[in-house]
Structure formats: structure tokens, C-alpha cells
Design a binder for these strands. Sequence first.
DNA 1: GTCGCTCCTTGATCAAGATCAATTCAAGAT
DNA 2: ATCTTGAATTGATCTTGATCAAGGAGCGAC
Lengths: 253, 253
Amino acid sequence: MRPEDLAEVRSLSLFRNMLQGNFQALMEGAYAQKFPAGLELIREGDQADFFHVVVEGKVEQYAHWQGRSTTMSVIEPVGTFILAACIRDLPYLMSARTLEPSRLLLIPASDLRSVFRRDPEFAISVVEELAGAFRAMARHAKNLKLRNSRERIVCYLLTQSRLAGGADHFPLPIEKRLVASYLGMTPENLSRALKSLEGDGVQIKGNMVSITDRRALMATSPPDMLIDGPDPDRFTRAPAGLRAPLHTPPKAE
Amino acid sequence: MRPEDLAEVRSLSLFRNMLQGNFQALMEGAYAQKFPAGLELIREGDQADFFHVVVEGKVEQYAHWQGRSTTMSVIEPVGTFILAACIRDLPYLMSARTLEPSRLLLIPASDLRSVFRRDPEFAISVVEELAGAFRAMARHAKNLKLRNSRERIVCYLLTQSRLAGGADHFPLPIEKRLVASYLGMTPENLSRALKSLEGDGVQIKGNMVSITDRRALMATSPPDMLIDGPDPDRFTRAPAGLRAPLHTPPKAE
DNA sequence: GTCGCTCCTTGATCAAGATCAATTCAAGAT
DNA sequence: ATCTTGAATTGATCTTGATCAAGGAGCGAC
């Protein structure tokens, strides 16, 4: 691995606070590797041998049953996956494939566990990462159970807008069929719903989204910090009494 | 807290391997408390102050949005909840209420974090607990996205049978309306589907379930270790080539 | 350029599941 | 025992979303 890559990895929140010696030990056993688009990295049910960090590119986590398949998440830099399976030394619950040419860091699960055991700072980073993954999955499940497909779409678009820095005009980060699968609906359904949403404050052309009436859109389906995120910043947190739901208009009219 | 309770808690997998001194420190700051049925213990959005362990009784985790509500999980002894929120010092994503009179252990989140930092054995137990929670939630989401309601019901019944020691005759552990909410459907739907399943190898009378033709039932909707569990035992694990899906009949006919 | 591939869209139809409404049932309280 | 309350069931209807089928658009290969 090149020294500049090493510095980049070292700066990730997961590795930032650990002891230098332990970091080096981890990196000596790790593989930095490039993969082409569309490659299956992980197959669900396999044993967890390597912890994966996405340094560059895009990785889809998906699952299947009885010939059906669904997108569970898309991981962008710098994100990680299959931490839980590695920690517990259990089979993966989800498969993973690259969506673009990607650069990954693969850390042997046994190394991960042994450094975890002797570096409390790293242990904290690992457990925070894992807690974040749990919360993301809990949000995903809440979204599926509490909203219909139209509402999920609206909140997805508003979340993407937020991730794009609050822009009213931004591209979808992934193909529509993946958006549909992630949101638990068919592509046909997504397509139709997107068109019908043009009367509610959003226009889609190709993969470009234009929010034309944010207030109307939010009234259609108010986002909720506890489903759509983000988690509040630990340091700028509002006092309890003022912790109103983010993004929620005063009143849907 | 009574000494015999203390011994019981100490024997839980979460606390079994930690240093005695650290265990005592945790217990000194913790509260063992009894709660009546139907009490709201946690409200989603609130700050995570206490890590909860269910020592006796039954606790429902649920979530809501826009007046709708859904059951996310039911925790029985000895299970824990809101670990992720405590670890990250973030607001709860789910509410929790007792379903029966229950005995809980409440550990201040700050104590949890400080002992986590200085006891590697405890850190490992915590991260395994959290990894388990993540996997449970991932399974929940997979179940919702990959199966229709009839299939979810069948697999739920088969899972309950397994948890009851493989019995063909066992009671539902929770009210049907909770089963319905947990499985992401209306009570009416569950009721109808249960009746219609009488032709497929299962009979329900009140809250008693009788599996009359397990093979037929499994053919209706084959359970999958990666959705329904259980995680394989670490020590009796089959070699990779033989890791066939559990419970799956040779062929659905 | 045009061929071929995949994704996306659109329309028509169908099935699954939700909703609304009305009983029935079970369990605890008095 | 009866009353009360919430759960469960049942039926009728409606809505949502899935499925099936047929084009159309985008894009890379050649």
C-alpha cells in the first residue's frame, strides 16, 4: 500500500484514535485492493474472514431469498461493512458487490479482534461504528414499516438533498432500480410515483432531481430525525426542551 | 439489590467475563427495579441515559411516525436494549414499554462507557451484544423486504416452534396484534392468513399453535438461517461445503 | 454511424393487503 | 353472576402496489 493511502486510512474515524503501533500491525496484515465494477465481494452465508473498508467507489449490500433479491444499503467512502459478522465470527447476513470500480481495504477478522482486545481507543471506534450500523438498519426497518412507498420516496429525496448540502438540484447517487429496491418497491412503481410527485414540489429528469417546492414536498411526508437522520452532533445538541423534530414544518396545511 | 439477584446478573453472558472489581463498580451505580405492565420505559428521541437489561418479564420496542406505530422487537430475559444509543450517547430511535410486570437492571450509560474502556473482556461482551442486535435488525429488514405476509407468518411460526424446543404444539409468546405489528401487517390480515393456513399444516386455537404437517408448512415458505436464525454455534459449525440451509426441505414440490 | 444491452418508462390488469364496520370472544372488575 | 374493556374475528369494499407486456432512451462496442 502506498504511503499516501496509508495516511488517508489512518485519518478515518475508525483508525484515527488508535495507537500507532496497533495501526501498523493492522495494516501489515491488511490488503488494499482495487476491484472492477460489478464484482461480488461477499456472498451471504459465507464465513466472515475480512472486515471491509470502502476507500473509494461504491458498494451495494444486498440479500436474497427464494430467487428474490433486495438492496439493503449502499456504502460510499469512507464506510465499512460486515463488521458485525467479523466481530462475532459468524456467517455474513448480506452479500456485497461493487457498483463502480472501487478501492477497498480488507482487514483479517482475527487481526481486528486481537487489536480490539488490546487497544481501548480502537475498541471504542469499532463499537461506535457498529452502533452506527445498527442505527442505520433500525432506521431502514422503521422506514419500511411506518411509511408507504410514496412517503418513502419523498423522504429519500429530501435526505439526498440534505446529503448534497441542502441543494435543491442534485443527481441521484445510484440507479433508479437500486433506489426502488432499497426503498422496497418495484422500479415501475418508483417511476410512476416520481412522475406523480411532480405536482408535489419535485421534478425528476433523468437522474437529476429538482426540488421546486420544498415546503409542499415536506408536507406530503414530513422527514423525521429518528428515521431519516442525521444523528445530532454531540456538541451542538439542543437542550431537551428544544429538541424539536428537524425539517418538520410548523404545520402541514 | 439482593445477593441472589446479583449472582444471577453476574452469570449473564454480558457480565460473565468481566473483572469482578469492574462488575461491582457497575452494579453500585445501577438500579434493579420492578415495573408494572404497560409502563413506558423509554420514549424515542430522548437522550440515552441508562442501558437496560431485562431480567424478568417482557419488553416491547416500538416506533412511531405520524400517528402510526409499529412493534420493532420484543425482548425477553435475558436480553438488553438501547445499547447502541448508550454507546454513542445519542437519542433513542425506539420507544420501549413493559408488556408484563418486569424486573429490569438500569446501568448509567456513562458507567457503561467507562468500564467498557478499561475492561477488554467487558468490551468484547458489549460488542458481541451489539453485533447481535445489528444482526437481529438486519434479519428483520430482510424478512420484511423479501417475503410477503403469508410467508412471514409461516416463518414466524416455525421460528417460534424452534424456540419452543422444536415442539409442534406451543403457545404464541405475545398477543396476536403484536405479532401482526411485528410482522408488518394488520391484525385483520394476520387473522385471515392464519385461518387460511389451516390447509397448509398448521392449526391455531386461541394462542395455541399446532403444527400438523411441518413438511407442508416448510414447503409453503422455507425458513432460512440467514433470516430466521439461529446463528450457528461457533464450535459445532459444519465445514463450509456442508453448510446447507437449515430447515429447508430437499425440494418444494 | 448502428448494433446490442440494460435501464427506464408507460399502459393494462391483477392480487395483496388495508380500511371500515360490525360482531364475537375472553378476562378482569365489581 | 353481570358489566366492561380490549382483543380477535369476519365480511365487504377499496387502495396500493405488483405483475405482465411493450416500447423508448441511453450508452458503450464495434
